[in-house]
Structures are given as C-alpha cells and as structure tokens.
C-alpha cells in the first residue's frame, strides 16, 4: 500500500501558487487495481508522479512498501534525443536487468525494426505508445503506475495492449490515471477521485462514476 501523510503539492505559476494537493492523508491500496479519476487539470498526473517519486511533495511524506514502476504514459520516460535502444540500455541498467534481453523483447513486441536505432523524438505517438508498453512489460514491478492507457495505434496493437494488461494484472496491480470512465471500469476495482486538492476513495466504481459525471 501507499501511504500519504499530510501531502501538499504547490506549483508556482504566473497566476500565483497553485495548490494541486492540499494536506492529503490517506492510504492507496496496492492489492487491488486503483483507478484515479478526475477532471483535466485536477492533479491526477501530479499525484501519480508524486507516488512514483518522480517529483517530491512540497510538504508531507509518501511511503510505499512495494516496488513501483515509473509513471508510464504516452511520452514520458524516454529521452527524445536517444534512440530506443539507448533508452532501453539506460532503463535496464538502472533497474538491474540485462539490456540485451530487453532490447530483444521490445524489438519483437513493438515491431519497430530499424526505428529502434533512431531518436525517439522522431517516433509517431503510436510508435511511442508501443515502445512504452513494451518497456513496462520487460521490467517487472509489483504495482504499475500508468498515465492513461494508450488508445492509439491500429487494431492489431490495441488488441496486443489489451492482452498485455490482462497479463500484467495477473501478477501485479495497477494504478491507472484516466479521464475515460470506460477504461477505469474495465481495469480497476476501486476508484480514487481527485477534486479540489483532496482524494476520496470509492469502493464502488458505479457510485464513483456517477459522482464524476455530475461534477
């Protein structure tokens, strides 16, 4: 589980300080799949990055007792100026995984071919999504932090993504950020709603979606 203790996150903006999370104390379960739901700009992605320790809270502490992935999203996690292979080497090295095997796996999964040797910044969003999903499958975590399930790409890869998520869910749990009720319903067991700097846990997904739609 992930414990948030009096977590506050404030960003400085041109319009003055923006309080994204306001003194939040709560527990996010990691033995079930959690969907994080909220309107655009309410701080869903920020919450995920805080949990992943990609960013530090302004005040408060966040503790986790399991191995968490980095926040996986459409674009994040890759250095655009490096090729896929160079990125994979780096990520494998810092996670203590053999990079040759990872490269081989990603090559087969993504079918990126010669693009594997080109800078990631030249990829289309569909290709990035493929690379992202493949990378996340190559390294095992207890809980995967996912910022929107990629819906891009052709039908064949969309099916492949879906199968992959089913596979991940067998051994690990998900924390999934989305503003799409459909994918939350499909992949999650409980919902964490972000609104006005606070978090609310809903055990019942239908109830959460009703609140979300009326907001």
């Amino acid at each position: 589980m992930i414990q948030l203790e009096q977590v506050t996150k404030i960003y400085r903006t041109v319009n003055g300080p923006l309080r994204v999370l306001d003194n939040v104390t709560t527990v996010i379960p990691t033995d079930r799949n959690v969907g994080i739901l909220g309107r655009n700009g309410t701080g869903k992605s920020t919450l995920l990055r805080l949990i992943a320790r990609a960013e530090a809270p302004t005040r408060g502490r966040i503790r986790a007792n399991c191995r968490l992935s980095w926040p996986m999203g459409f674009s994040g996690g890759f250095q655009g100026s490096l090729s896929a292979i160079e990125n994979i080497r780096f990520v494998s090295r810092i996670h203590g995984v053999d990079w040759r095997q990872t490269v081989k796996f990603v090559e087969e999964y993504t079918e990126l071919g010669n693009f594997m040797r080109m800078p990631v910044s030249t990829y289309s969003s569909g290709m990035r999504a493929r690379l992202n999903v493949a990378m996340s499958l190559a390294i095992r975590f207890d809980t995967y932090l996912i910022d929107e399930i990629p819906g891009v790409g052709d039908a064949r890869f969309r099916k492949r993504f879906d199968d992959s998520f089913k596979m991940i869910k067998k051994e690990s749990s998900l924390i999934l950020v989305s503003h799409d009720p459909g994918s939350i319903k499909k992949h999650c067991d409980v919902v964490m709603m972000v609104s006005k700097g606070k978090l609310h846990l809903y055990e019942n997904i239908e109830e959460a979606l009703k609140v979300y739609e009326n907001e």
Partner: peptide, 11 residues
C-alpha cells in the same frame, strides 16, 4: 539535457 531520464525516481 537529461530531462526525460529524471522521471525515474532513482535519477
């Protein structure tokens, strides 16, 4: 120059 890699909590 390493912005993308700072996403990993180890870095």
């Amino acid at each position: 120059a390493n912005q993308g890699l700072l996403l990993y909590p180890q870095v």
